[in-house]
Design a protein around this nucleic acid. Structure first.
Lengths: 88, 88
DNA sequence: ATGTGACTTATAGTCCGTT
DNA sequence: AAACGGACTATAAGTCACA
């Protein structure tokens, strides 16, 4: 998984986790809404400085953007038939 | 510690650990030698794609570049006078 | 609320050199 | 081998209108 994909994935994850819109995030970080959209679709190639600003707004470490997603979370894999998982 | 500083620190760390010159790393990653120098001195603001290429050459995950150095390794702090620390 | 295209401007990244 | 500068070129970053 390359860096650009990681950024896209994590950015969208962190943003939606917080229930904030691209518009809102963009405004808070002082970037353009269209660019956030591009980053989340892997069309933009963010600089470290930009990641820094976004990390600040989202209150996370910059490194969060390069975190590798746990296997199985990339595509929301359909569960294999069988015993229903116990609610942890 | 901001992203740019982390990249500078980790890039130099990973490169020197391997005993490779800026010139050599630059050539292998297909980037300019002068730019590697800038990155290590926090003057350059790398893009994620570039970090990707460097990570490839250095055989590490991209996230390595944003790893926070262990406390005490930033400046090679002079030891406080007193009991000599036991070799762990 | 997000995606996209067309456009501008700032800067990432190159290439030449010198110290 | 690395820091540093200047002049360049490619593209990140920002703006806007519209689907």
């Amino acid at each position: 998984m390359n860096g650009r994909t990681l950024v896209a994935w994590n950015l969208r994850r962190l943003r939606t986790e917080r229930g904030v819109s691209q518009e809102r995030l963009a405004a808070d970080a002082g970037v353009d809404r269209a660019y956030i959209s591009e980053l989340e679709r892997e069309r933009g190639n963010a600089s470290v400085d930009l990641l820094d600003r976004l990390a600040g707004v989202l209150s996370v470490q910059v490194s969060e953007f390069l975190r590798v997603p746990p296997t199985g979370s990339e595509k929301v894999k359909p569960l294999r038939a069988g015993r229903k998982p116990t609610t942890r």
